[in-house]
């Protein structure tokens, strides 16, 4: 109980003094996760929609594969990206290992399947309802992709949030490819892991509370926006 009170005290102290180191860690965490989510959306939304709309051989297989990849273990992704980016790996020449870029790449790989798989489900259901009408209006499957993504926007927000949640919560992949280097690649989850291993439970718990609050804030804000907009459009 003492530990807990101390942790909260430490967390608020760090927060209210806008502790430089803390702000740096929080800032980098948000930056990495948000960029990863953005890139994953650019890939995952159209990919999921395409698998929902186009009829091609192996389509079922793709759908199942995506669902399976949703549960990719972060450490495995970290390991693969590590091997690809390490000096002797195929992309070693870019020197990206132990940079935020490497962490973004790993997170994109982790969350594209989540966003794509959830998008596929949403768009497939919408297509059942819209297909005749859209084709009658003159839209082919390709043209229907942006239309359906826009019309499914309220449901798709959930898919994007799921991706963001996974990106900001995972520690295994960013630890391996980022290396948890102070001032360079240290993010909240890796910092927490480090503080715990050092025995500094107070700081670790404090960071954990901030991570939780951030996640709640993002989800709450998006939920509120979604509810208001959705009520307007029925």
């Amino acid at each position: 109980m003492d530990d807990f009170g101390e942790a909260i005290g430490a967390a608020f102290h760090l927060l209210f003094t806008l502790d430089d180191q803390l702000m740096e860690i929080v800032g980098l965490s948000l930056q990495v996760s948000l960029i990863a989510v953005l890139i994953a959306c650019l890939i995952g939304l159209p990919l999921g929609a395409a698998i929902a709309l186009f009829r091609f051989p192996g389509r079922k297989f793709f759908a199942i594969l995506l669902n399976a990849l949703m549960g990719l273990p972060p450490v495995v992704v970290g390991l693969i990206v590590y091997l690809a980016l390490s000096r002797s790996g195929p992309f070693g020449v870019f020197g990206l290992l132990y940079t935020p870029a490497a962490m973004i790449i790993a997170q994109v790989i982790l969350i594209v399947p989540i966003i794509a798989a959830l998008t596929r489900q949403v768009i497939e259901d919408l297509w059942l309802e819209y297909e005749d009408q859209l084709r009658s209006l003159g839209a082919n499957s390709t043209r229907a992709i942006p239309t359906l993504l826009w019309d499914g926007r309220f449901s798709l927000i959930t898919a994007v949030l799921a991706g963001f949640g996974r990106a900001s919560a995972e520690v295994g992949a960013v630890m391996i490819v980022g290396g948890n280097i102070d001032h360079v690649t240290r993010v909240m989850t890796t910092a927490i892991a480090l503080e715990v291993s050092k025995g500094d439970l107070a700081l670790a718990l404090g960071l954990g509370i901030i991570l939780l609050c951030l996640s709640l804030t993002v989800n709450g804000a998006v939920y509120a926006i979604k509810e208001t907009a959705q009520r307007r459009h029925a």
Partner: peptide, 10 residues
């Protein structure tokens, strides 16, 4: 025009 027209969420 369908019996139950589908309108876009716009």
């Amino acid at each position: 025009v369908f019996q139950r027209p589908i309108m876009l969420r716009r």
